[in-house]
């Protein structure tokens, strides 16, 4: 393994650099994936049949809270990578823990939201609009849930091995993933909720 000491840890080996580049490509595919979901949503948004429309069920407060939690978590994962670059293992882990907690809180509110929708008569099979809404939000939420598991696995490895080429690389890639989920949420917030509330 050739090590390049002029680079930050996560870029230190050829394999590490390839992984990061590969992950960017994977994010390209993820963009295509969410773009398709958004398209489906926009096509079906006005087809709420006899069920409620977006304007009737969306509420700003929980959504604002979700946005706040997820944006903050994006900030804290940034701090984690910053700490990692400084070689501070404990702070890195701490910021990842905070990120995951914020993510879990986000997910909690989202699940609560789903329950209220169902309560108000909007289920997956109510209308095409409902199906596309749940699928778009659900896919994003499933990504967050997967992120929570992934982040925990990385935390354990950080604890066991400290900051080295492998763990630094994984943490960095995880941070890319997390930022990406944040970006997707911003689109959901603006084009699903804000537009739906208008």
């Amino acid at each position: 393994m050739k090590i390049d000491a002029t680079q930050p840890l996560e870029y230190g080996t050829e394999e590490n650099r390839n992984r990061i580049f590969g992950f960017w490509l994977f994010l390209g595919a993820e963009i295509a994936l969410f773009a398709t979901l958004f398209t489906v949503y926009f096509v079906l948004v006005n087809r709420y049949a006899s069920g409620p429309s977006g304007a009737e069920i969306f509420e700003l407060t929980p959504v604002l809270l979700e946005t706040f939690l997820l944006l903050t978590s994006s900030f804290t994962i940034g701090l984690a990578i910053h700490a990692m670059r400084l070689g501070l293992k404990k702070q890195t882990m701490m910021f990842i823990v905070i990120t995951l907690l914020l993510g879990a809180a986000f997910l909690g509110i989202e699940i609560y939201e789903f329950f209220t929708y169902v309560h108000e008569g909007l289920t997956l099979s109510t209308s095409a609009f409902a199906s596309s809404l749940f699928t778009l939000l659900g896919t994003h939420g499933a990504h967050v849930a997967f992120g929570l598991l992934w982040g925990s696995v990385i935390l354990i490895q950080l604890k066991k091995h400290g900051l080295d080429h492998s763990t630094a690389n994984k943490s960095f890639i995880f941070s890319l993933y997390w930022h990406f989920l944040d970006v997707v949420w911003i689109f959901i917030f603006s084009f699903v909720y804000l537009k739906g509330l208008m």
Binding site: Y48, L124, S127
Partner: peptide, 14 residues
């Protein structure tokens, strides 16, 4: 499997 309405003929499906 879950009865969603994306491609159905009723309930707004397309």
């Amino acid at each position: 499997l879950f009865g969603s309405q994306f491609f159905t003929m009723a309930n707004g499906g397309m």
